[in-house]
Design a binder for these strands. Sequence first.
DNA 1: CGTCGTAGGTTGATGGTTCAAGTAACCCGA
DNA 2: TCGGGTTACTTGAACCATCAACCTACGACG
Lengths: 164, 164
Amino acid sequence: MTEWLTDDQQRAWRNLIGVATLLPASLDSNLRCDADLTGFDYWILAMLSEAPDRQLRMSALARQSNASLSRLSHAVARLESRGYVQKAPLADDGRVTVARLTDGGMAKVVETAPGHVAHVRDVVFRDLSPEQVAQLEDVCGSILGRLTDEISARDGEPGQSSGR
Amino acid sequence: MTEWLTDDQQRAWRNLIGVATLLPASLDSNLRCDADLTGFDYWILAMLSEAPDRQLRMSALARQSNASLSRLSHAVARLESRGYVQKAPLADDGRVTVARLTDGGMAKVVETAPGHVAHVRDVVFRDLSPEQVAQLEDVCGSILGRLTDEISARDGEPGQSSGR
DNA sequence: CGTCGTAGGTTGATGGTTCAAGTAACCCGA
DNA sequence: TCGGGTTACTTGAACCATCAACCTACGACG
């Protein structure tokens, strides 16, 4: 009987799916309204703002943001056209593109961050005890590990699978 | 100091965002490949298959699936054109549309479900203890409650907000 | 028995994501 | 030093979600 989910699992599953669909929508809606940014756009800007020298290679940025290179490329192109980031080829290796946060982009982050963080606290962490925060980190970390394993397995063995 | 997140919260936040972005992508990719269905499409079919008489009003379906009526309308239109569901106005109230799962749609669910459920178990529940499943339900339920509160607050007070 | 307001859905345009294909720079062996 | 393979990224088309506008059916009030 490995066929279906237990009742406990079903309830957890429904809640998780609900969060996974509603949470991004809520963040997007809030950021779009306040700053005309996608959640993903904001995430990119925020990561660049914390990176050394405020710049990162495209592939590193893609990995850190759990996005495909294609998605990132489109998004950064849009952000560049709005003056928030600037792209430049790396001197050492002409294949590599580094995205750098401009001063305007940094200003945008500084201006947007407080409201965004307040919203996140309101929706996610308000009423969560420290133990629940730890549990959230733990359980999501476990799931996240399997998700990233799955991804690296997919493009690690493009031709054949052997393990199962 | 209500400005930023604590370190614990930051780590939990990163993991949650990772799951919220990667999990839908993983489900979509798996279902698209196996059954040429969106995760949302599958969810609709699955809900109809469990509903009394295999039919539901559009608005009820929208609420249960955490989707906007517009999104649902488009999705059901696509599913109808593929012969999986059928729409009909309700006799009592001409405004209401009920979506009913056809035999073909039921067959599709029966055919697709096992692989989908197996994938969910592999990615989400594999290696989670019963306590962790309970914690997941609990914490996500709490967050989900705040998210749905936010939504009903938004279209409950369309004219003005007072609190902030 | 109109008509005003609202509930329930639909539609079209816009914009972001994805997938497949393409391009250019690097590396390595002969 | 030249050609095949790989890495890193970009591009264009197709698709899905979202938002705003719209439309029809019901309900209530005069």
